[in-house]
């Protein structure tokens, strides 16, 4: 079984994000970039499948700040190949563009599964798996929480709303957006990452600039505050007094 895992970098949400001078992107100068956590779940699922059933795991992604770190981490965890697609793109990459670049590369590859994170902080509507599947003309599914080889294809479990899960059978190749792997992403010791780094092993490919049409961001901004919440403090007596005061001032309407 050959599994391709598509990974991407996102701004580390631990940092305070700021909007840059253009007003249409985050300030990328000082922010740190880390691997998308759902992609890590996809990688974990791929590694578990490989460990259980044999096969090969290939990690691929479009070059971005510190993307090498993510690729080396994946190699250290047990991925067999790591591929980096560079096209000199800068700034925020729309999902449609990412899908185009990945699809171009995938066209020439053989694989049974393409796994990617169901969403990312800059793709909360989780488009990547769907758009990629459509571009490749392959069946696709999102919010996948379970995946097992099943006869000639795979048994895919998806989470629906309201605590309902759905199981389907699909014959590959498939493109899946992974919500959760069968286990939490494993820890990879720094020494193994360093070993992977000194061994090199990232395949770097120059690819042509994307042509896909994507919406252009016109304005990026922090949510605007609509009214303020008032914190009532933590001394019960003061809180109570303030509540009484507020009720007196604003009145109570009993209906």
């Amino acid at each position: 079984m050959k599994i391709v895992v598509a990974m991407r970098q996102i701004a580390d949400l631990v940092e305070e994000l700021e909007v840059d001078a253009s007003g249409a992107d985050i300030d990328r100068e000082f922010v740190k970039f880390v691997s998308n956590e759902w992609d890590e779940a996809a990688l974990e699922e791929a590694l578990c499948l490989k460990e259980a059933h044999g096969g090969e795991v290939v990690v691929v992604g479009v070059d971005d700040v510190d993307f090498d770190q993510t690729l080396f981490g994946a190699l250290a965890k047990g991925a067999d190949r790591a591929v980096k697609l560079s096209c000199g793109f800068e700034g925020w990459m729309p999902t449609a563009v990412r899908a185009e670049l990945l699809a171009r590369w995938l066209k020439d590859e053989s694989f049974d599964l393409v796994l990617t994170g169901v969403q990312a902080a800059d793709d909360l509507d989780g488009q990547l798996a769907g758009v990629l599947g459509a571009r490749l003309g392959l069946p696709h599914a999102a919010v996948v929480v379970g995946l097992e080889p099943d006869g000639d294809g795979f048994k895919v479990t998806q989470e629906l709303g309201g605590g309902v899960t759905l199981t389907s059978h699909a014959t590959g190749p498939l493109v899946l957006g992974i919500q959760a792997a069968r286990q939490a992403p494993r820890y990879v010791p720094i020494s193994r990452i360093r070993q992977a780094m000194s061994a090199g092993g990232i395949e770097e490919l120059e690819v042509e600039a994307p042509t896909a049409r994507a919406p252009k961001v016109t304005r990026l901004f922090a949510p605007e505050a609509k009214g303020r919440a008032e914190m009532l403090g933590d001394k019960p007596s003061e809180v109570a007094a303030r509540i009484v005061e507020l009720i007196r001032a604003k009145g109570i309407s009993v209906s």
Binding site: D12, V14, V34, R186, Y187
Partner: peptide, 20 residues
């Protein structure tokens, strides 16, 4: 640690230390 066998809370502490 080399085998990645540890408490999840320890794992996230180590991951935090590695990144932040």
């Amino acid at each position: 640690v080399d085998a990645g066998e540890m408490d999840p809370t320890l794992q996230s502490a180590l991951e935090n230390i590695a990144t932040q």
